[in-house]
């Protein structure tokens, strides 16, 4: 199977797009709140690869080309940020304090749980940048001496989990303010969460985009201090 399929670079993009469109269609039919199209698309792709015995490399040699558009897409997140500039200016202290509290919670929780589970120093460092965007998180992990591959895994799981769970969590904790919702999603689950925030609304999307940038930079600064606390 691999020989035939690896002949075309489009097998990866085809499977990825088809799985995502199918997941959206299923969501429309089911109208089920907890249903998450990103998670379902990932499961469909994994199932197809396993059932048809296709190597991840065969899939990814084409699929990775989709990722070329990630930087241009991220750059465009400046658009909602700009259109919401008045809200940003007016609530600047709240936004900054909110993101900082989230970053400290992330680093503090990892510290506490690493102690409880008896992690090694290297394991602890691996999880410190788990809430921030992949590119920054990878370099933090590398710089401080973590297992970069596990950091990346944790970052992706964080993002997908945040994308799935955000609406339930926001409801559970009574977070109703649209700015606060965006900050909560972006600070906890970076760009993958932000794609969900963009679907919820423009204010949420803008604030979530801003949180990716600010929480990433704050984590770079604070992770150093947290390493010495272990």
């Amino acid at each position: 199977m691999n020989e035939i399929l690896s002949a075309s670079v489009f097998i990866g993009p085809f499977l990825t797009l088809a799985a995502y469109v199918l997941a959206i269609e299923i969501r429309k039919k089911l109208r089920f709140g907890l249903f998450n199209q990103l998670l379902v698309a990932i499961i469909i792709c994994i199932a197809v690869l396993v059932l048809l015995d296709i190597d991840y490399e065969t899939y990814n040699q084409g699929a990775r080309h989709i990722n070329v558009l990630l930087t241009p897409a991220t750059v465009c997140l400046a658009v909602p940020l700009y259109t919401q500039i008045e809200k940003l200016k007016k609530n600047f202290p709240a936004i900054l304090i909110g993101i900082l509290s989230g970053v400290l919670t992330s680093l503090g929780t990892v510290l506490l749980m690493a102690k409880i589970f008896g992690f090694s120093q290297q394991e602890y460092i691996t999880f410190l940048p788990k809430s921030i965007t992949t590119a920054i998180g990878m370099s933090v992990s590398e710089e401080l001496g973590g297992y970069v591959a596990i950091t990346v895994t944790s970052i992706i799981v964080t993002g997908v989990f945040g994308n799935i769970i955000c609406e339930a969590i926001l409801k559970l904790f009574g977070i109703r303010n649209r700015i606060a919702k965006g900050i909560a999603i972006g600070t906890s689950s970076h760009a993958i969460g932000t794609t969900r925030a963009m679907e919820i609304g423009e204010v949420e999307g803008a604030m979530s985009s801003l949180s990716i940038v600010v929480s990433g930079i704050l984590t770079v600064i604070l992770a150093d201090i947290f390493v010495s606390l272990f």
Binding site: G12, T16, L17, A19, Y20, Q37, L38, A41, I42, C45, I46, L49, Y56, Y59, N60, A63, R64, I66, N67, L69, L70, A73, T134, V152, I156, G159, V160, N163, A191, I192, T195, M198
Partner: peptide, 12 residues
Amino acid sequence: IMPVMFIPPAVG
């Protein structure tokens, strides 16, 4: 299409 870009690394 941005969510789609996260599918390949997640499948990985």
